[in-house]
Simulated scan of single mutants.
Amino acid sequence: MNNLILLAVCFLAGMLLRRSGRMPLSAPAVLNSFIINVSLPALTLLSIHGMQLTSGALLPASMPWLHFALAAAFFLMVGRVMKLPRATVGALILTGGMGNTSFLGLPMIEAFYGKAGLGYGIMVDQFGSFMVLSTLGITVAGFYSDGAPSAGAILKRIVLFPPFISLLAALLLIGVDYPSWLTAVLQRLGDTLAPLALLSVGFAFQPGHLAGNGSRLALGLGFKLILAPLILALFYVYGLGAHGFSAQIMLFEAAMPPMITAGIIASEHDIDPPLAGLMVAFGVVFSFVTLPLWRLVLGGL
């Protein structure tokens, strides 16, 4: 509950700072740059390093990959039918295809399922969401920002993406003990991600952006909060026979609102920043209604 209060306070603080004029309008760009280049790599180095790579992590970790593929297929199809702008499709794929499985997901799991569910949530987040963000997410961002980059350009963008570099380093360093001072430094830097991200989202949030974006926002959040979790639940439960506590946690994570970092990447690459910001902000708000309902639905697994 403390984590949820922290997120709400930081989001509201960002809104108030914008209204007060105490921070320059360029503040979100600076905050986002720090998050991508410092906070997220530090958190990755710390979190992945402590994970156990076991076969039991494969099923939960597969969900974010399938979720992203489902979002790409859905929004590409709907984009053609509705003749949506290219940037809009890119923003919807990024924010509709990746969930907030860590900063909102883990506190929600603890609130609804207890601490026993956190291990499964971490598997989904670290082996799934983080890796999707560092590979497919940055690939889509490069494609929709640069037009049609070459395979070499996409590969270069992935390889030079700081969270991806830290992901590889963390995997290579599994089994190597960090010195206590390094663990402490990474912990402090990683802890800045959630508050700075919500502060940035709150600062950049402008309800006026709803004008002209209402239908697109409804489309994106309808998919992310309702349709995608439903399709994934049908696939895993009836297609793969997934049941029990771990399946509940995995599918509960699938119902999380858009990943904050995905919205930041969309803004960093100038991929319909207003819509990306709305998806993240309103997604968090609406999830406080949809997640309890999903908890009831998934309780029978």
Rank of each mutant, 00 (worst) to 15 (best):
L133M: 13
A141T: 15
L106E: 01
K156M: 15
P24C: 07
M23S: 11
L43S: 04
L45I: 10
A27L: 05
S33E: 03
L16A: 11
L43H: 02
V280G: 00
Y238H: 11
Y120I: 09
V132E: 04
S215C: 08
Q52V: 09
S62I: 08
F288C: 07
G277T: 02
I260H: 06
F223M: 08
Y113H: 03
G14M: 14
M123Y: 14
M131Q: 13
S180N: 11
P179V: 01
F288H: 13
R19S: 14
P41I: 03
L133F: 15
P41D: 10
Y113G: 00
A254T: 11
N37A: 10
S47Y: 14
V176N: 10
G263Q: 04
L225E: 07
L94M: 11
P60C: 01
M77C: 11
R86H: 13
Y113T: 00
G56H: 02
C10G: 07
A72F: 15
A184Y: 10
A87I: 00
M123I: 04
A27N: 05
A57Q: 04
G114T: 05
M15F: 07
F34E: 00
I48Q: 05
D146C: 08
V237C: 09
S166E: 03
I231S: 07
T290N: 10
L155C: 15
A116C: 01
V78H: 13
F288G: 14
K83Q: 15
A197N: 12
G244R: 12
I260M: 09
T54H: 12
V30F: 01
F245Y: 06
L168V: 07
M256N: 03
D270R: 12
F252I: 07
G121P: 00
P207H: 05
L189E: 02
H243V: 06
G202D: 02
S129A: 10
S287G: 11
V280A: 02
A151W: 14
G99L: 08
F205A: 03
V159C: 04
A169K: 06
L193Q: 14
G220K: 03
F164L: 04
D146T: 13
G214D: 01
I154H: 14
V159Y: 11
L193H: 13
T183D: 12
L199S: 10
L168E: 00
L66Q: 12
S55R: 09
A91Q: 02
L172P: 05
F286L: 12
A266R: 03
G208S: 06
F11D: 09
S166K: 13
L196P: 02
I264F: 05
S39E: 01
L31A: 09
G128T: 03
A151S: 06
V81H: 05
P162H: 02
A73I: 14
A184Q: 15
K83L: 13
L173H: 02
G241P: 15
A233G: 09
K115W: 01
L45N: 01
L4F: 15
A169R: 03
L94Q: 11
V38R: 00
